[in-house]
């Protein structure tokens, strides 16, 4: 079984970093992983996105046009990628910056006020970490505890950053757990 998640937003929102943390968690869980960045003119300030693939088998194509889940941190990212998510997948919307939702009933859409939660914790820089927490809780892409361990080890020289990131991850997960489970529409509907 292969899971893919696309993280998308503005450059500077920590998109590449949270993608890398997820990949590291996959590696720690002894699964095959690959992290694919968008690189190009958009690296210099515009839209940034990366895709993480986690699988029990060797990973073939690094080109993922229909990911299983999407974390959209800004509106252009949501509008561009929401239609590509596979039915049954998860979409995390950063509702602090995105005033719209997704008109799809075949995917699990979760609105999380990532910037607001991050500010409450102490810094808007943790916003994408809130989204990662929500994604991890909403999908079984990696064990939540593994993700926590990865954050502790990656930020072990910056205790304050580690604390904030873990708190952000936990708050994101809480929001995800509060919402009822997603029931896909019946196939014959």
């Amino acid at each position: 079984m292969q899971d893919e998640c696309k993280f998308a937003g503005f450059g500077g929102q920590g998109i590449m970093t949270v993608g890398r943390l997820l990949a590291l968690a996959g590696l720690q869980a002894e699964r095959e992983v690959i992290w694919i960045p968008s690189y190009g003119p958009e690296m210099r300030g515009g839209t940034a996105y990366c895709t993480v693939v986690i699988s029990g088998l060797p990973i073939g194509s690094p080109i993922i046009n229909t990911p299983g889940s999407l974390v959209a941190m800004n509106r252009p990212s949501l509008e561009k990628f929401a239609p590509t998510v596979r039915p049954g997948g998860v979409i995390i919307i950063n509702s602090s910056l995105i005033p719209v939702s997704v008109p799809r009933d075949d995917v699990d859409v979760l609105e999380v006020p990532c910037n607001q939660i991050a500010l409450e914790i102490g810094s808007v820089r943790s916003a994408s970490m809130v989204a990662l927490g929500a994604l991890a809780a909403r999908s079984a892409i990696v064990p939540f505890e593994t993700l926590c361990e990865v954050i502790e080890s990656e930020f072990k020289r910056k205790a304050e950053v580690a604390r904030m990131n873990l708190a952000a991850l936990e708050r994101g997960a809480e929001v995800a757990r509060e919402k009822p489970r997603f029931e896909p529409p019946a196939a014959d509907a």
């Binding site: 590696l27 095959e32 690959i34 992290w35 694919i36 690094p62």
Partner: peptide, 9 residues
């Protein structure tokens, strides 16, 4: 370019 840019274990 993908070989240069992507991350793998």
């Amino acid at each position: 370019g993908l070989i240069g840019q992507m991350m793998e274990p």
